[in-house]
Design a protein around this nucleic acid. Sequence first.
RNA 1: GGUCGCGUAGCUCAAUUGGAUAGAGCAGCAGCCUUCUAAGCUGCCGGUUCUGGGUUCGAGUCCCGGCGCGAUCACCA
Length: 594
Amino acid sequence: MIEHQIQLKASEAFNSLYSASLQPSEISVQKTRKEFEGDYTINVFPFLKISRQSPEDTAVRIGNFITENMPELQSYNVIKGFLNLTIDQSFWIGFIDAEINDDSFGTVQQLSDKPVVIEFSSPNTNKPLHLGHVRNNLIGSSLAEILRASGHRVVKVNLVNDRGIHICKSMLAWQKWFEGKTPEDAQVKGDKLVGDCYVEFDKRLRQEVESLMQQGLEREEAEKKSLLMAEAREMLMHWEANDPKVRKLWANMNGWVYEGFDQTYKRLGIDFDKVYYESDTFLLGKSIVDEGLRNGKLFRKDDGSVWADLTNEGLDEKLLLRADGTSVYMTQDLGTAQLRHDEYDPEKLLYVVGNEQNYHFDVLKLILAKLGRKWADNIIHVSYGMVELPQGKMKSREGTVVDADDLMDQMYITAENMARELGKADELSSKESEKLFETISQGALKFFILRVDPKKNMLFNPEESIDFNGHTGPFIQYTYARIRSLLKKAEERGHLVDNPTDPGEVLPKEIEILKLLYGYPSVIHNAAKDLNPALVAGYAYELSREYNQFYQEVNILREADTMKAVFRLRMSLFTARVIASTMGLLGIDVPEKM
RNA sequence: GGUCGCGUAGCUCAAUUGGAUAGAGCAGCAGCCUUCUAAGCUGCCGGUUCUGGGUUCGAGUCCCGGCGCGAUCACCA
């Protein structure tokens, strides 16, 4: 990479001119800001102590040295302490000619057999997927693609939270108030039906608690005394004891939920290499807790409950087994971590889980370390922010949860209406237009979510539908479709884009695009390093914007000079490929026409 | 209350990890389709980067105090 070569020459310059001993990596080479002349910039301020000269003099001397010793450099200029280097245009043209036929441009061959195991989605089987899950799924799925592109072997796993007290609540509700109802005869998706059961339980439980409170009990007391809760707890014990009747109902209801989830995943374009079920891993978790008890790393209280003492680590005591012997969230997470380690011997174990669980993952790592698992260090919590509504957090009680299926339906309708208004669907068969509306609406939704830094909370306003213009997925898809159309016309007119041509003088706008294209590999690299798909999204947008400006300002097919025309077509082709690649990393399709 | 995180244009987000005059989109206003797709392009408007101090050649970014918002500290997951 040219940045590295500049670093190399710059360190040589400092070392020979000022007898310093700088490593190339100590010199940061940045892209020159647009308002200045040049392609790459070295800031010499940090090195004034070495040069013992003014910023300007230092920059000039280094600039002279580099320009003389690097044939790719055309010229340089100095403004204050900033040394701006201009690369000869032949370098950029050569770059296109060298890379245009490389379909995997930007990606790296697999470096190691040890996989990165990435967990995402991790739904509960008591409610349908909502917007928060959508963010989780999109981040996880995109990160998997980005990591793969940057040379990692990736294993995508899902951990379904299919057992526990909350699942018993929906089961109980179904027995009591939904008996006999199935998704088929209720004409709803299975996950929706089970979700309704859970909501019903919650409603009845609140009624019970309130009536107990009217009899004079404190809330906490009332919750303990609740008969419904007692029944749920009892059901959980029967479940853990393998009671065939409870297990059958459980398998049945979870089956409904999985069918519903599968539809949602499929539409979102999400899939997994392996699905774990908490019901399969909690026993392993329990056995790890037993082991910890035996070797004295954990302790048992008088009521029989088992705890980890983390007071020395500055935290609290943490429950691992209830007094009745049933397990909690942390228990099974110990089990799944162990299982994944044993099965894959992974390079890293990634967990895409919301930032509300930061504490949980700190604790998980500490307990695993306490239990002697050295690989606890390989666990990385990819902590992402919440999706908030204008009123704040989504709350099922207040009915403000944005359902994933509903949202995708709405997006589709918006895309369809807009396309029809613009006359985009006029020449398409109904099948083609359905595909187009789906591509565009999914592109809008996914880009809307992935363009935001995962670490940050983000806002979704259901009142204003997600944009299809401006800084959006459809904008990028449109740019792609435009180029495809352009290339098709070029082919019809007999332009051959396979062979390099000499375009003569290249326009600044063209250099701008070439520089962006050249930078794609490092975009992937950085996105993988920071676990941040937003870097890819930002790049895709910037590239598209630059291209659209170029398209609007400059003649391509209309250019009389064939050499220039072919060069611009080749650049367009390359841009389209890179756009398609970036969108692929985000899980977004690009249409040939729109 | 303890811990962690956040605060940038009316709104939604950026800012090359301490670098040059803080940038985009939306919204608003004014323009551009007999010529390669107008889901596009051009221009205008919009900022005390919550606040007060500090560190240094340089701070939206780092440190300390304050204010505001959120998460968490569950025998929920």
